[in-house]
Design a protein around this nucleic acid. Structure first.
Length: 271
DNA sequence: AACTGATGCAACCGCGTGGCC
DNA sequence: CGGCCACGCGGTTGCATCAGT
């Protein structure tokens, strides 16, 4: 299948964005939205390819983008989510309001990976190493800094995570075929075997997983083996019974995802 | 003060996927 | 049904800045 080039290289600007370009992009999207990224630059009067515009918007100009340093909670969340999801940065970013996949990816590669390497047993609780970038603020006057929008700290907190502390895993959890097992240690408990999810799990094994849940799961230890309490009154929590969810599991990916996050894994799937 | 290696981050690149015709 | 197109994603690169000598 022939693949059209991302954009004509001829005459299109590359590299860091200027404040003027940012303004043009923001003004256009606020007025017209971004129906078609490919057509957008022309309409907005920008000499950029649509891809570049999309990236700039998503990573920096979008009003709900949270700027600034990652909090300890956010970093811990990233580590936990990465243990479960692997390098699925967009999926991780979806759980961290205001943070982009690119940002998370950068933080992972520049800080968190090292942190885990230095403290392989305690990635999540490892002593936080001060980021050099904290003191830097080097690009505050840089041309690449986004135009001033409501980029202040978002009041939407990091999605609550109550998973058990998970021991450090290999870097490439996504490379694991099907469901393999990772040893999870919980406080004052024997290590339990927890599966690692790969890409196919979400599409292929959801039904199997659902059926397990549907059966005896409610009393299974893994399900309620939570270190921190779940706020059952919370609407984004386990309000809906798992059994109910099974009925329309296709539409309830978020439910299952949250469930996994809160429990720290999924049970071993039987044939 | 000058140089150099290390670091952090914005942006780019190429591929996979899904929708539309 | 197959081809085209646009979008989204993850990996990688380029470069400004920092830190050490």
């Amino acid at each position: 299948m022939g693949r059209a080039p991302c954009c004509e290289k001829m005459g299109l600007k590359r590299g860091p964005w200027t404040p003027e370009e940012d303004k043009l992009l923001v003004a256009h999207i606020e007025k017209n939205g971004h129906g078609n990224w490919r057509a957008l630059p022309k309409l907005a009067g920008l000499l950029r390819c649509g891809k570049s515009c999309r990236l700039r918007w998503i990573n920096y100009l979008r009003p709900d983008t949270k700027r600034g340093n990652f909090t300890q909670e956010e970093e811990d969340s990233i580590i936990k989510l990465h243990e479960i999801l692997g390098n699925r940065w967009s999926a991780i970013a979806a759980r961290l309001p205001g943070r982009t996949d690119n940002e998370i990816k950068n933080v992972w590669h520049t800080h968190l990976k090292k942190r885990l390497r230095n403290n392989p047993d305690k990635g999540v609780d490892a002593k936080r190493q001060p980021h050099k970038s904290v003191a830097k603020s080097k690009r505050s006057t840089d041309s690449t800094a986004p135009v001033s929008l409501n980029n202040g700290p978002s009041d939407s907190p990091t999605s609550p995570l109550t998973t058990s502390e998970v021991t450090s895993m290999s870097d490439k959890s996504t490379a694991v075929a099907d469901i393999s097992h990772v040893e999870i240690e919980t406080e004052e408990m024997e290590p339990i075997q927890m599966p690692v999810i790969d890409e196919s799990f979400w599409s292929e094994d959801l039904d199997s997983f659902s059926s397990i849940i549907d059966a005896d799961l409610l009393s299974d230890s893994w399900f309620y083996n939570l270190q921190a309490p779940i706020d059952l009154s919370s609407t984004d929590c386990l309000v809906e019974s798992p059994a109910q969810s099974v009925q329309n599991s296709e539409e309830n990916m978020d439910f299952w995802y949250d469930l996994l996050i809160r429990t720290g894994g999924v049970p071993e799937l039987s044939d």
